[in-house]
Simulated assay, not measured.
Amino acid sequence: MNTSTTILVTGATRGIGAATVSALESAGAKVIGHGSRARDGVIGADLSDPQAPQALWEEALDRAGGRIDILVNNAGLFEASALDSSDIAWLDAWEETLRINLTAAAQLSRFAVRHWQERGSGGRLVHISSRAAYRGDSPAHWHYAAAKGGMVAMHKTIARAYASEGILSFAITPGFTDTSMAGDYLASRGGPGLLADIPLGRVATPDEIAAIAKFCALEAPPSMTGAVIDANGASYVR
């Protein structure tokens, strides 16, 4: 890795995102983090706002001195939406979840691809998707599964479209991971009882997912572009 490698990580203030920042920085990369609110050098941007991804990209590019080499799309929203909620509440939840989990990632990916094309430099995208992209999710999480499935399809399209320009794309599909985002869901689904569905006997740790993200960002050979890497304790084997 070039020691001047600059990486933008979304959703960088907790869980998988924070662990990924730590792993990348330990490898010598310069990391620009994003969170829903600005703090300690982290760029604040509410990705439910359609204008926020562009503002985030432009500020990150400015902080990076005009060059970003790698984008890690990690920011996500995981909130239940009951089937019998009101029509407007159900639709609002659907649209917010897709905007944060998929559309914002698509906007940032587009800015990154165009940036690399203009520079003629190549670059890498790492998308943190979910096991739900393939297996689906609970009855209250149609929107989440749909968003993560869309992210995988987007990733594969990018990989096929731009590999000849040195623009590479990788996706990671974790199962349950021990993060604050998943904690309430794990408890609501029975906590330890849920582990019976995971042959490994435990959920993943953020550091485990971060290690995969670091590999994709800095070490994976170019021939791996388009790959989707599962990390779910064998709870879903494709």
Rank of each mutant, 00 (worst) to 15 (best):
E59N: 09
Y236G: 01
W142A: 15
S26Y: 00
A12P: 10
L77Y: 08
S188Y: 02
A182R: 01
T103F: 07
I229Y: 03
M154V: 02
G35V: 07
G41N: 10
W142Y: 12
T97P: 10
G15S: 05
A105N: 05
N73L: 07
E118P: 07
L47N: 01
S130I: 06
T179I: 03
A146Q: 01
D87L: 15
D84Q: 08
E96F: 00
S169I: 04
T179M: 03
G201Y: 03
M224S: 13
S121T: 15
V203K: 06
Y162N: 06
A171Y: 06
M181Y: 02
F170A: 03
G120I: 06
G44A: 09
P53W: 04
R202K: 11
V31M: 03
A234Q: 11
S109F: 02
E95S: 12
V228W: 03
A213W: 00
A27N: 10
T3M: 14
G166C: 06
L8R: 05
I212W: 01
P206W: 00
A38T: 10
G66D: 09
S130K: 00
A18T: 05
T13L: 08
Y185H: 14
A133W: 02
W142T: 13
G76L: 08
A80H: 09
S86K: 04
T13H: 07
G191D: 14
W142M: 12
P199C: 04
T3K: 15
A220L: 04
S188D: 14
D230Y: 00
F176V: 05
P50A: 12
G166N: 04
I70N: 07
A106Q: 09
G35W: 03
L91N: 11
G65R: 10
I198M: 00
A227D: 12
A75R: 10
M1D: 13
G226E: 06
L102Y: 08
L218R: 05
V72G: 09
C216W: 00
E118L: 10
R135K: 15
G191S: 11
K148F: 09
L195G: 10
N2S: 15
I158A: 02
P192M: 06
P199T: 11
A104S: 15
Q54S: 14
G17M: 05
A213V: 12
P50I: 05
Q117C: 04
T97Y: 03
H34P: 14
S188N: 13
G233A: 09
R63T: 01
R99Q: 15
